[in-house]
Design a protein around this nucleic acid. Structure first.
Lengths: 247, 247
DNA sequence: TTTCATTAAACCAATACTGAACCATTGGTT
DNA sequence: AACCAATGGTTCAGTATTGGTTTAATGAAA
């Protein structure tokens, strides 16, 4: 891992002084201390470390000793230093970053989402019918065929999302496409998926397939009014199924 | 591999410069401070920040240093700046990629935005009329009165945004409120503001005032259908004015 | 004793920061 | 139309900070 480890293998002798003639005990512990802090995340990638004078004070060593450790860490590629600017973390192993939805998104209830979809998507269908290019419509048809022949709920979910996404893209409206991204992000939330899994049966699957086919047909026929009306029915069906309004 | 890393680190100066041009410790902390305040809600989406001179004073740094941080934040899409007008929050950090106001959204054309507003806001008005609490309606009325007595376009813009925001809040729908934030952020973009300034005259101001009053009246009367119809007319008027459909 | 890591302090070189002045644009007023 | 005030944009000289270097003193270990 370190250059000094290679020296150690070469010589085959376990001695601190031999491993690195230029690093004393205080310097070595300072270096280990710094490495530990970097790997623990106290100093993250790209972050600026405290100045040498302050860092030496914190670690309880003289500045010269600290510098010996810094030279090693720089040579091993963990740090970058520059006169007048500072010392920065250049590499940190095994750093994981998680992605998360915004608070508002997580707080949005399925009822909220369906309310918005019921407002927007019928208009989107109408726009797609009146404005979509032939390529857009082809993408829509591909998604429809794939969703019709999907086996499990997971596969159906994927192609269902792709179908709606393709319809959104046909509107050529950047905001609507962005909104579709947001909706899809919510659909991938575990809670949302569990709700859908609980409420979608084979019957409703068949029902959705018929509605999808009819909507795509209207879009292909360049019939905005019909597309809008059918999408309204489809959204209502989804909402009623998921939220139990039907029963 | 290892030698490659060494070379990479050797050139670390250049890499650092590219990553963060001329951003020292004070500037970096000022940037983090601002980001934290934005995220915490002290500066909300679309809101105008204090002037650079006052902000620098508050954060305890020189104006030049603050400006270095502002340049970075603007480049990252969190802020929008305009000479003679001010600095505005354009994006709230820590939102997922699926959330609103991505780079694509800021590039959305006024036509895109008006198309979506024409779809959504009539329904929002209806929801506000049927679902808004008395506190919500009071907030709406306050915003209306303030917008009616606003002097310059800048002040009118502010209260107009607040009025629409209040109506969105009355829907109690987290997604719709999020969408309203995004719309307000776009309205502060220099291009959008210039377009509005070019197209809004005293006549249109009077027209908007009348429409606002009628919409608020319908909401207060708990009349969803009328509110929706009036909002549709209002959105159409705005779109036609700004996009020149009338002429 | 000799050796050498460590400490401490002073100084150098490069960069960042400060504070101030001035310019350019905008919004509003007279 | 002219003007004022406020805001972001720019430049510059001086100061502070930071990594880089040298030197001397100390103390423990060989």
């Amino acid at each position: 891992m370190f250059a000094l480890d290679q020296d150690w293998i070469k010589n085959g002798i376990v001695m601190n002084e031999i491993r690195n003639p230029h690093l004393g005990r205080a310097a070595a512990t300072a270096m280990q201390d710094l490495l530990t802090r970097i790997e623990s995340g106290e100093f993250s990638l790209g972050q600026q470390l405290p100045s040498e004078r302050e860092l030496a004070n914190r670690l309880g060593v003289a500045r010269n000793t600290l510098r010996a450790a810094l030279v090693q860490l720089e040579g091993d590629g963990f740090l970058t230093r520059q006169i007048g600017r500072g010392t920065f973390v250049a590499q940190v192993p095994n750093r994981s970053s998680g992605s998360f939805l915004s608070r508002r998104m997580r707080n949005a209830s399925p009822a909220d989402l369906m309310e918005v979809r019921l407002i927007i998507e019928p208009h989107v269908a109408a726009l797609a019918a009146s404005r979509g290019s032939n390529e857009d419509i082809e993408r829509i048809q591909i998604a429809l065929r794939a969703s019709l022949s999907a086996r499990g709920l997971s596969e159906f979910e994927h192609w269902d999302a792709e179908l709606h996404m393709a319809i959104f893209h046909a509107t050529k409206n950047a905001l609507l496409i962005d909104y579709c991204d947001a909706i899809n992000a919510i659909r991938n939330e575990p809670n949302w998926y569990r709700l859908k899994k609980r409420t979608v049966s084979a019957d409703t699957r068949t029902h959705y397939d018929q509605q999808h086919s009819a909507i795509v047909q209207a879009i292909c026929d360049r019939d905005p009014e019909t597309a809008q009306k059918l999408m309204t029915q489809h959204m209502s069906a989804i909402r009623d199924n998921m939220l139990g309004v039907l029963g």
